[in-house]
Design a protein around this nucleic acid. Structure first.
Length: 338
DNA sequence: GGATCCTTCTTCTTCTTC
């Protein structure tokens, strides 16, 4: 039996069995009638003729619907509801819990403390097995849904730009990120960045918008303690390179600068970035190359058009929560890696 | 000189109607 989409939907929602069958009978010839005309199917309805029927179906006075009545009606129409068993995810426990803070380090660094800026470069010791990096761990332990959405995004982009176009697009994103980081480094250290880090003949002022975007954030960044510096967790055996450690509005933070095409006004828009920052903070606190400890984090998302960057502060409590999530991911990585 | 490393980014439903 052919039924207009609107009719079947409305009646099913109204949950009136008898009304459903009479309505279906009454409207069953509509599509055929409408097909002869180009106009909308709904314009063919003789609303005056059917007005009492429609009123009867949708009126709450004649149908005191309750969740129970709707459910029993649905069961009659569509069969019994198959309910999945509520799954209680077992509370996972860390096999190797590790504190975020380091008792051996006396206190959180204060703004008035003197100290040189640290910039430890990455060095590979070929004699020892390579430690996993923060980025690698996060990439290798993405959830199935994360991978699904990323893969879908990639497929859509390739469909839009072609394989070569996509490669170029990706390379350009990375390039912009690198140029942006070099420009921030120069701004925070008052140093002139290496020529190759800022020059981009085919794209002048490539990072001008990004710098404009973060200008209001930079005003609150003082006392830079580290830039592009390697941190290594002494016991958990992983490493990473922090963007920056500095004072931001009164607290010492590990700062991560990001560029983004899409606005990221909320912390959850930044996906694994908070875990990345927590991982750096934990490593920094355990690393004896740094005499101080850090409790807070900051993620700054800059935009090319110069619109104000979104900055997401991570309180000490939030960092602790993300630290625990990071530890789970690290355990997962190590289990996979074995 | 070449290879490798870390990082740089990318994600969250989708449609109609007013």
């Amino acid at each position: 039996m052919r039924v207009c989409a609107l009719c079947s939907l409305s009646v099913a929602r109204a949950g009136l069995g008898s009304g459903l069958f009479s309505l279906r009978r009454s409207f069953s010839s509509l599509p055929a009638l409408c097909a002869r005309k180009k106009s909308s199917e709904y314009s063919c309805v003789d609303s005056e003729h059917y007005s009492s029927l429609v009123r009867a179906v949708v009126s709450t006075r004649t149908s005191a619907q309750t969740p129970e009545s709707i459910e029993s009606e649905d069961a009659r129409l569509f069969g019994a509801v198959v309910r999945s068993k509520p799954r209680q995810a077992p509370k996972k426990t860390l096999k190797n819990p590790c504190p975020l803070l380091n008792e051996a380090k006396s206190s959180i660094w204060s703004e008035h403390e003197e100290g040189a800026m640290t910039r430890i470069a990455l060095q590979r010791n070929s004699d020892q097995p390579a430690l996993p990096s923060v980025t690698k761990v996060l990439q290798k332990t993405m959830s199935a849904s994360q991978l699904f959405y990323l893969e879908r995004w990639k497929r859509r982009k390739i469909a839009e730009l072609g394989e070569e176009g996509f490669k170029e697009y990706s390379m350009n994103l990375f390039k912009q990120g690198k140029l942006f980081h070099a420009a921030i480094e120069a701004a925070l250290t008052q140093e002139t960045p290496p020529k190759e880090d800022v020059e981009c003949p085919e794209c002048p002022d490539e990072v001008a918008g990004y710098l404009q975007s973060i200008s209001h954030v930079l005003e609150d960044v003082t006392g830079v303690r580290a830039i592009e510096s390697v941190v290594e967790h002494q016991s958990l055996k992983y490493l990473g390179i922090m963007d920056c450690v500095a004072m931001y509005r009164g607290s010492l933070c590990v700062i991560d600068w990001k560029t983004s095409e899409k606005p990221k006004p909320f912390l959850h828009n930044t996906y694994d970035n908070p875990l990345q920052v927590a991982a750096y903070i934990g490593a920094l606190n355990s690393d004896n190359n740094y005499s101080y400890q850090v409790e807070n984090g900051l993620i700054v998302v800059a935009y090319k058009d110069g619109s104000p960057a979104h900055s997401h502060r991570l309180s000490a409590e939030q960092v602790t929560q993300y630290w625990e999530k990071w530890l789970f991911r690290l355990e997962e990585y190590k289990e996979k890696d074995v």
